[in-house]
Amino acid sequence: MSNDSDIFETAACWRDQGRGVALCTVVATWGSSPRAAGSQLLVDDKKSFLGSVSGGCIEGAVINEAVEVIADGKPRLLEFGVSDEQAWDVGLACGGKVRVFVERLE
């Protein structure tokens, strides 16, 4: 459990421990989505994470992208839409759409 205000302190702490760290931020939402713009997920290179960018629907996919961003340093803008409940794709069951910015902490 964390408040969003803990994210930056924890990011600095993880970085000081020598871990690769990426910060993932919800920058836009459409329709119903569980976390508002500004919500953040912190990810390290071993896929430990803190915070959230959805109700748990897209975190797995965002964490995988975050590990890529930690490796190559290139920020990415990800977009997730409605999931097809019949398929095993990544998306939001609530019918909303979110855009997530993922950046490496240098």
């Binding site: 930056f8 302190e9 600095a12 970085r15 910060l23 931020t25 240098e106």
Partner: peptide, 24 residues
């Protein structure tokens, strides 16, 4: 995010200073 910028964010939060982080 650059390390100096993260330090500035944390400093503002500790000082309870209202700020905004802008990202292109």
């Amino acid at each position: 995010m650059r390390r100096e910028l993260l330090a500035a964010v944390i400093e503002a939060q500790r000082a309870k200073r209202p700020v905004a982080l802008v990202t292109v």
